[in-house]
Design a protein around this nucleic acid. Structure first.
Length: 742
DNA sequence: TACGTACGTGTTTTT
DNA sequence: CACGTACGTA
């Protein structure tokens, strides 16, 4: 009786504040459920409340629940919010990313794959170094097939679950595609020889394992009786198959997503997974969450005006009952420095008006754009956090040390071995590495053994440094195998590898920070051990490296909370799933957004979704901006305002202040877009008429005199490369650049 | 042969 | 601007 009362109370608690559709989703009995959740419609809320409901009201043991997301950040948030609802009752719920789920299943069953559970997960650097060697061995010109392209193609194939044979079979017979097929075959072979997997393998091999091993599949289905998948619109084929496999028995699968927010097609995401859910599960119930709780009506309206231009989408209308606040605004700046300084001063105003800094975000399309904001904010002492750029674990000295640890765990890992042999420099160069590789490759002996044999080979001159290294390596291996604490091993490596001496150069502040980073790394590992120790878990190097490898490009797990202070700087891709009171959406320029590359790939609709994602992150205030000119690399190029601004009905003809814009825009966005008031800058206000050729002398009003070095016809006009007399080289589009012939 | 430096060249998004 | 390659020196 008492428990019934308790349950009723809990049930009410978990439904409180939810709308009818959200309640229906939480209460959904079982079986397949598709939730089409518009931006800001409370989907994370629905998922976490449903988990809470399952555990506390329906008595599902938390270890029977599996929730899958795409990013560690999202998983962490989901875990946190579940804990808020059910406290320790949710402790055993498995809330993870697809990749970490795969990794766990593979570790537990490595032997079924013919791998040791100590296998290595290659990071992009290791992948690339392996790819280069393979292409060289296959004698494929780098110009024909760059390593990145080869890797990209193989990863796409892997995501489609094509093994090298089926890939070769369906590949066109031109030399380019044949080279890729050949590459894929060799790449896969070498990864396995080196006891290594790459990111796409974590999904591919998991699917293969479950497909070929009925017993294991049955175990997984029994283990996870309820499956919840977030951001379903971003699943690739492998992830999709994984969901079908895991849900196959009980069919208790809830997927949540929004086709308008699919922004990862370039990573193999297939929007038809969400569009066809009802075909895969004909008995599926479909719910639509269309009430937005996040943004003001004018922000939502702006978002709708953009996204409605997409043709491939499920029509839906978001509405909100929130009161309107300050309408979104647009401002055009001269260059990115001005844009950044203006954002800074607006942030200062917001701060004095009581907005906390971590409620503010600055968005941009590419990571390179963060630089100017970091610089301006740093000079102004404005606290800020950059997401997704280079992080602690990406630093060279840290990666080097991780390679040292990695080869202690997996001596067959050639990529990390070569990194270790080359860093810090120890008298072992490219030629030696090549010989060892060749010896290992032709005789089939392990790389380490090849190195040993090379050192005693008559006539081989580079034996001394090899022997010195091997002696070190054996000592470190003994230390590891004697069960020494990982942090002690790391400290030993820092002291004995020569890495400190190498980086300790003169009074370079850079090298001081490198050495500090290494110490910090050792401390982080010691903390990790202590935390695991508190749970009575043994930590080995392999486990630590794994936990780091999956966090590679996200935030540093340790510095997380404290460092989250200040204004958030991030790419649009990083912004998905987050919300902020105030959003500065910067760099809305042609060739940046839509990005030139996407345009060439015919991916305009995805760029539009990116804009949609950006706009819908804003709760109260949204500031859009673009620049007339932008410095990229060495040159300073003119930019046109993004076509998406036109779609929003935003007037971009001349520079306007925020207030001017507010009054003219606020309530008439439609009529602007219908009249197409946006005009491009005059087609030619530059120097096209001069018909400049290499060798001509010119004068530029800002940069002085110089000589035309090169001209190149591009779709946008003729691109001039000018070498100025001060020695600098700059590139301009002739039609935008007034020049004087001298 | 190893390694540092000078130059030239191309530039999205990330688990 | 930052990375990768080509070259020159020890």
């Amino acid at each position: 009786m008492e428990t019934d009362n308790l349950k009723a109370t809990l049930e009410r608690e978990f439904l409180e504040g939810l709308n009818d559709v959200q309640r229906e989703a939480v209460l959904h009995d079982g079986g397949p459920l598709l939730i089409l959740a518009g931006a800001g419609s409370g989907k994370t809320r629905v998922i976490t409340h449903r988990i809470a409901h399952l555990i506390r009201v329906r008595d599902v043991p938390s270890r029977r629940i599996l929730a899958v997301t795409f990013t560690n950040k999202a998983a962490a948030e989901m875990r946190e919010r579940t804990e808020t609802l059910v406290g320790p009752y949710g402790r055993d719920a498995m809330i993870r990313t697809f990749h970490s789920l795969g990794l766990q299943i593979l570790r537990e069953n490595a032997s079924l794959l013919g791998l040791k559970s100590s296998f290595t997960v290659y990071d992009p650097a290791a992948q690339k170094s392996l790819a280069k060697k393979i292409l060289k061995d296959l004698k494929v010109e780098a110009a024909l097939l760059p390593p990145e392209a080869a890797l990209n193609a193989t990863e796409r194939a892997r995501e489609r679950l094509l093994d090298p044979d089926s890939y070769a079979a369906e590949t066109r017979k031109d030399p380019y595609h044949q080279s890729i097929a050949q590459f894929y075959r060799e790449y896969h072979k070498r990864l396995r020889e080196q006891q290594a997997l790459d990111f796409s393998d974590l999904l591919y091999e998991t699917v293969m394992l479950l497909q070929t091993n009925a017993q294991l599949l049955e175990m997984c289905r029994r283990r996870w009786q309820h499956l919840l998948v977030d951001e379903y619109q971003d699943t690739n084929h492998a992830q999709y198959r994984l969901v079908l496999l895991l849900a196959g028995g009980h069919r208790n699968v809830v997927v949540v997503g929004d086709d308008d927010q699919s922004i990862y097609s370039w990573r193999g995401a297939d929007i038809s997974n969400i569009l066809n859910f009802e075909k895969d599960f004909p008995e599926a119930k479909v719910l639509r969450l269309e009430e937005n709780y996040r943004s003001t009506p004018s922000i939502l309206k702006l978002a709708a005006s953009v996204i409605q231009n997409n043709s491939e989408r499920r029509e839906k209308t978001l509405f909100t009952n929130r009161p309107d606040a300050r309408p979104p605004s647009f401002r055009l700046y001269q260059e990115e420095g001005e844009e950044a300084r203006s954002v800074l001063s607006r942030i200062r105003e917001l701060r004095s008006a009581g907005v906390r800094l971590n409620e503010i975000a600055v968005f941009y399309r590419t990571n390179a754009q963060s630089r100017i904001f970091e610089q301006v904010f740093r000079e102004a002492n404005l606290p800020h956090t950059v997401f997704g750029g280079f992080r602690f674990f990406d630093r060279k000295e840290i990666r080097d040390l991780m390679a040292y640890m990695q080869v202690l765990v997996n001596p067959l890992d050639v990529e990390n071995f070569e990194r270790v042999l080359a860093n810090p420099p120890k008298g072992i160069g490219e030629k030696t590495l090549e010989s060892a590789r060749f010896l290992a490759g032709t005789t089939g002996i392990p790389y380490l053994e090849a190195l040993r044999q090379l050192a005693v080979k008559p006539g081989f001159r580079g034996a001394k440094p090899i022997n010195a290294f091997l002696a070190n390596y054996e000592r470190w291996t003994d230390l590891n195998e004697s069960g020494e604490r990982p942090s002690v091993i790391l400290k030993t490596l820092i002291e004995e590898s020569g890495i400190v001496e190498y980086y300790r150069k003169e009074d370079d502040p850079e090298s001081v920070s490198r050495i500090e980073n290494m110490q910090e790394f050792a401390t982080a590992l010691a903390d990790y051990e202590d935390r695991a120790g508190a749970e009575n878990r043994e930590v080995d190097i392999a486990e630590f490296l794994q936990s780091v490898s999956l966090y590679s490009s996200e935030s540093d797990p340790d510095l997380e909370e404290e460092d989250r202070q200040g204004v958030h700087l991030m790419t649009l891709h990083n912004a998905k799933g987050l919300e902020f009171r105030v959003v500065f959406f910067t760099g809305l320029e042609e060739s940046l957004l839509p990005h030139r590359m996407s345009l060439e790939e015919g991916n305009l609709e995805e760029e539009r979704r990116l804009v949609y994602v950006g706009i819908t992150r804003a709760m109260e205030q949204l500031y859009l901006s673009a620049c007339r000119f932008r410095r990229t690399g060495g040159s300073f190029d003119p930019r046109l305002p993004s076509r998406f601004l036109e779609e929003m009905g935003i007037q971009t003809r001349r520079e306007r202040s925020y207030d001017e814009f507010d009054s003219s825009w606020s309530d008439s966005s439609r009529s602007y877009s219908e009249r197409k008031v946006v005009s491009r800058p005059a087609p030619d206000s530059g120097s096209s008429a001069l018909n400049l050729v290499p060798g001509d002398r010119i004068r530029h009003k800002s940069f002085g005199t110089g000589e035309i070095e090169d001209t190149e016809k591009t779709p946008a006009g003729t691109k001039l490369t000018i070498r100025f007399d001060d020695g600098t080289t700059r590139r301009f589009l002739d039609r935008y650049t007034p020049l004087e012939r001298i």
